[in-house]
Amino acid sequence: MSKNYEEEIRNMVSDILEIPVEEITPDADFFRDLKIDSLKAIEIVAAFEKKYRIIIPEQDIPKIRNLRQVVEYTAPLKKESHT
C-alpha cells in the first residue's frame, strides 16, 4: 500500500475530525478512540466518495473502523475507479 495514499487519508480524516494527525494511528478506532459520531462519519464517507469518485455502500460503513481498514477498503475501489 502506498504510504502517500495512507498519509493522504490520514490528513483528510484529521481535517474533518479537527484532531492532530498524530492521534490518527492506523488502529485507532474511529468510534471508541476518536469519538466520532454519525455526523462526522457521513462527512468522512462523503469526502472519500467525492475525492476518489467511489461509492461506499451504507452496509459497509460500520465495518470500517480505523485508518488501516479505510486504506484496505478504499484502495481497490480507488484503483477500479481509475481503470
Binding site: S38, L39, A41, I42, E43, V45, A46, E49, E58, I61
Partner: peptide, 10 residues
Amino acid sequence: KVKFLDNAAI
C-alpha cells in the same frame, strides 16, 4: 442530496 444514510445526511 449529497449523501444520505439512515442516521445522517448531507
